[in-house]
Nucleic acid binder design. Structure first.
Lengths: 142, 142
DNA sequence: TATTGTTATACTCTATAACTATA
DNA sequence: TATAGTTATAGAGTATAACAATA
């Protein structure tokens, strides 16, 4: 019985999560950045200054593609290219103030939609989600 | 205090859901179908036979693009093109047995990963997720 | 004349291959 | 000679515009 229940939970949870993620992704301001650009910018912001090659492999993209992505971001002033201190071949990509602002605004708008939905729930339902959130996080930390 | 708590929950939940969705998306068999093709196939399967134009607007794609997507799916025998009964201009796209099998296998493999993660949780944690799943579904039904 | 779908053509994004410079 | 990044070129995927067939 527990096994069959778990299979059903997996199916239900998967659909709910995918659907919710889809909505969260849709509730995105049109920053006119491509998803690749936005993703690379977020990575640099999250992990700190990185070499172009490291960023490319982290984003599962080839170096030439990352050269173009970073070029587009740099043209908008969202990232800066800093030469490596000791290795003249490498360049470090870092977010600028404008880049951080854009990411902050992006997150804020996505959270706004969800926060509004949450305000429509009952206290009991909110309590359940409070307990569920860390468990959902735990699922991906394997 | 409830407002600030909700904002925090929104932020936490959003990250957990997006991360989990990403993992679920990654745990995908390489069906060598593009995401557009897989998405269109799933739509036809979910909503039943549709005219090409209806499918295009449902998938937020232009008709010429859908012509190509459907062409690729039809070449693999995953969908069939059926002429409309009364309107000779329209063609209806329908899934084939092979198309339904591919989708079933695709879902099965994604659920397998999540089911395994769920087996590693405690009974108490599972109970929380059981309660949370319908609430998460409710969030998107607005 | 309006609508459905297709064909022609162009643009964007990414990849591989070849190149430049630094180690 | 090996490595980091760039430039050159090609291949998907999608879009707009023009077209053919049917209502």
């Amino acid at each position: 019985m527990p096994t069959s229940t778990d299979t059903h939970l997996a199916a239900t949870l998967r659909i709910a999560v995918m659907r919710l993620a889809r909505r969260l992704r849709t509730e995105r301001p049109d920053t006119d950045l491509t998803l690749s650009q936005l993703s690379a910018l977020a990575s640099v912001d999250r992990h700190g200054p990185m070499a172009l090659g490291a960023l490319a492999s982290h984003e599962r993209v080839q170096p030439p593609s990352m050269t173009r992505i970073v070029g587009a971001l740099a043209d908008r002033g969202l990232v800066s290219r800093v030469p490596h201190e000791t290795d003249g071949r490498q360049i470090l990509i870092a977010t600028t103030e404008a880049g951080r602002d854009l990411l902050k605004e992006d997150r804020r708008r996505r959270e706004a939609w969800l926060a509004q939905r949450l305000r429509e729930l009952s206290p009991a339902e909110l309590a359940v989600l409070h307990e569920a959130a860390p468990i959902l996080e735990k699922l991906t930390s394997v």
